[in-house]
Design a protein around this nucleic acid. Structure first.
Lengths: 344, 344
DNA sequence: GCCCGTCACTGAACCGGTAAAGTCTCTATT
DNA sequence: AATAGAGACTTTACCGGTTCAGTGACGGGC
C-alpha cells in the first residue's frame, strides 16, 4: 500500500496555530501537568478547528501505549462463521474496547504454531499492546511465549490449562455436573455427550467432568462420549451413530458442546423417526438465539457470552495497568429448560 | 497501555551484526536494488539470527505502506453473532489478507456517523491503508468521505448505492427474480418476502425487484413484503403475521432475506400447525450450513460468501495498487432446492 | 533586596524505520 | 591519463509524536 497525497495535519500545525511548541500540545493531549488552563484550552481549540487527533502510529513509535489488542483464532474459517459463540464473544470484547478507544486486531490462523509466530511478530512490531488467548490445548506453548516476550495477555480457559497466565474461565466441571444431574433427575440413565474438538483443553475438562458426574449417579447410569469438530455435520453424524442402537441400548438423552450440533441432532432424531423429547432428550450448550428458533425449542446450558467477552477485555486492561496474574471465574452456565428435554 | 521492559531488537542491531548501515538493511528488506548478493545474504542471515523483522509501526510512520485494512460494521452486536454471513465474509477477506501479510482491523460501531468518524481517525492516524465498506444506505456519506480523505476503499454493494467507489456486488435483482420465478413455476401465486433492515440499500433493491418480479407473473400473483431487523425473533414475528390469515388468503410461499429468519419461520409454521412444504414453502437466503441442519432442510439462494469476501479483499488490493474505480460483480446467488419448497 | 522554588513552557533528542542525496571505488571510454 | 558512469554503500534528513533537561518569569520568605 502506498502513501496518500492527502495533506495531513500534524501536531506541528496545531502547535503553530495555538502559538506553542509541539511539546505543549503533547502535554495537553496526555493530560499531564505543567500547562495553564488557558493554554490547554487554546490548544484544544486549535486541535478541534484543525480536526486533529494524535497519530497512534507516531505515539506508539515514540514509546508510549499501543492501543490495539490482538486476537488470533485458530479454527477453520467455515466453522467460525457458524459458531454464534465467536462473534458474540468478540462483540463483548469490543463493547469494552470502544470505551477505551482501543481497537481489536483479528486474525484467523491455521495452526497453533502460526499463532505463536503471529503473536511474536505482533508484539515485537509493537502492533499490539496485549493479547487475548483462546482455545487452549494440552501443553499449550502460549503461556511460555507470552512470559518470555513480556506480552500482557489474558487467557480464556481454566487455570489448569493456561500456565499461570491471568485467566478468565467458566466452571465447566460444575456446569457439566449440573447438566447431568438435571437429566438424571428427569429419570435418564443412558446419557451421551457430543463433545467438541478433542485437542482443546476445555473439551477434556468437560469429558472428565461428564464421566465423573455420570459415574456418581445412583442408581448407576451408562455414559457415551463422542468427540467432533464442532460442526453441524459432525454433530449430525455423532447423533446418528448414538441413536442407531436398538431402543433399549441407546442413550435417552444427549448433551451437545455447542448449539449448532444440537440443532443438527434435532433433525437427525426426526429423520430417524424419534420424537424429541419423548424418545430422546437433547441439551445444547452456549444458548444462542438459535435455541429458541427450533421446534421443539432447545433446552440449553446458557451462558452470557457477550458478558464473558466483556469481562475478558476488562481483565486484559487490568493486566495492562499492572494487575498481577489472577484467576477470574465468570458465572457458571445455567440450565435453561425448554422443549427438548423431558423424562425418558 | 505501557511500554514493556523487553529488549527489542531493531534495525540498528541487525546492521551492526551484518557490518553495514541501517540504510543497507532497509534496502535489503524492501528488495530494492543497490546491494550485492553477498551483502544481502549477510543481512538476511543477521536478521534471522537475531529474529528481527521490520517494525510496521516505524515503517508506517516513515511514510511507506500501511498493511492494515479496516472494517467497521454497524449492526447490533447480538445480531452479528448470529448471522453466519459476517464471520464467513470476514474469513474470506482474511484468506486473501494473510497471503499479503496484512491484518484486519475490526470494529463494531453503533451508527453510521460513528463509522464515518472512525474511518477519518483511522485514516488520519495512518492506522489503515484502506477500508472495506459494507451495509450501504440511501445517501450514504461514506463515498464522499472516502474521496475527500483520499482513503482507498472498496464498497460492498450495488454500484447504484456506492457513489462511484469501486464496488463488489451480487446481482440481487436477478437473484430475487429467480427465486420468484422458481416459486411461481412450482405453482405459487401468493408469495411473501421477509426482508432485512429497511434502511439498507440492498434491502430496497430486493424489495423493488420482488415487487417487479411478482408483478410480472402470468397469471397475476399476490405479493406481501415485511421489513425486519434480520433477527430470528423478527423473522418469527413476521412469519406469524403472514400466516395468521385464513387459508385461502395467506401466502403459500415465503422468501427470507437470511437463513436465521428462515429457520425461525420454519418453527413458526410448525407452531401454527402448518406443514412445510405442503402448506407453505420457505426459501432462505445466503445458505449457511444451518439450512442443511433443519427438518425439513431449507431451500435457499446460495451464495459463496467466503469467496465474496476474498474477492472484496482482492479488489481492495487492486485499488491500493492504483486500479481505477470499477464495478466487480460476483456470481449471482443460485437457487438450491431442498426440502422446504414444493407446489402449494 | 536577594535567593530560592515553582510554574509554564521550550528545545532537542529519540523511537525505528524510509528515502534521497552523497561518497568511494572500480571499470570503460576517449 | 583524465573523465565519466555505474555499482555498492553510507549519511542524513525526515515521519509525528513523547520525554526530559533547561530556561525565564514570577512570587514568597527572611
Amino acid at each position: 500500500m502506498t502513501a496518500t497525497p492527502t495533506p495531513r495535519v500534524t501536531i506541528k500545525d496545531v502547535a503553530a496555530r495555538a502559538g506553542v511548541s509541539k511539546g505543549a500540545v503533547s502535554l495537553a493531549f496526555n493530560r499531564k501537568p505543567g500547562l495553564s488552563e488557558a493554554t490547554r484550552d487554546r490548544i484544544f481549540a486549535a486541535a478541534r478547528e484543525l480536526g486533529w487527533s494524535p497519530s497512534t502510529t507516531a505515539r506508539t513509535l515514540a514509546g508510549s501505549r499501543v492501543d490495539v489488542v490482538g486476537l488470533a483464532v485458530c479454527r477453520p474459517a467455515r466453522l467460525l462463521g457458524l459458531e454464534p459463540f465467536y462473534m458474540e464473544f468478540i462483540s463483548g470484547v469490543e463493547s469494552v474496547l470502544v470505551e477505551r478507544s482501543c481497537a481489536l486486531l483479528l486474525r484467523l490462523v491455521r495452526s497453533p504454531e502460526e499463532e505463536v509466530g503471529l503473536l511474536e511478530s505482533w508484539w515485537r512490531g509493537r502492533q499490539i499492546g496485549g493479547s487475548i488467548l483462546v482455545d487452549f490445548r494440552a501443553d499449550d506453548p502460549r503461556p511460555t511465549v507470552a512470559k518470555r516476550l513480556g506480552l500482557p495477555a489474558v487467557a480464556v480457559g481454566h487455570p489448569s490449562l493456561t500456565g499461570g497466565l491471568t485467566s478468565v474461565w467458566t466452571d465447566d466441571t460444575t456446569a457439566v455436573a449440573e447438566a447431568v444431574r438435571y437429566l438424571a433427575a428427569l429419570g435418564h440413565r443412558r446419557i451421551a455427550r457430543v463433545g467438541g474438538a478433542a485437542e482443546l483443553g476445555h473439551t477434556s475438562i468437560r469429558t472428565a467432568a461428564f464421566d465423573e458426574a455420570v459415574g456418581a449417579l445412583e442408581p448407576a447410569a451408562r455414559a457415551w462420549q463422542v468427540a467432533t469438530d464442532f460442526s453441524g455435520d459432525a454433530g449430525a453424524r455423532a447423533t446418528r451413530t448414538l441413536l442407531a442402537a436398538p431402543a433399549g441400548e441407546r442413550p435417552t438423552a444427549i448433551v451437545y458442546d455447542n448449539d449448532i450440533m444440537a440443532v443438527a441432532g434435532l433433525s437427525v432424531a426426526a429423520e430417524m423417526g424419534l420424537r424429541v423429547p419423548e424418545d430422546v432428550s437433547l441439551l445444547a450448550w452456549d444458548d444462542s438465539q438459535l435455541c429458541r428458533l427450533t421446534r421443539p425449542t432447545l433446552s440449553a446450558m446458557s451462558h452470557d457470552v457477550h458478558g464473558f467477552g466483556a469481562e475478558v477485555a476488562r481483565t486484559l486492561f487490568g493486566t495492562l495497568t499492572g494487575d498481577g496474574p489472577g484467576s477470574h471465574p465468570v458465572p457458571t452456565p445455567v440450565l435453561t429448560p425448554r422443549g427438548s428435554t423431558a423424562p425418558p
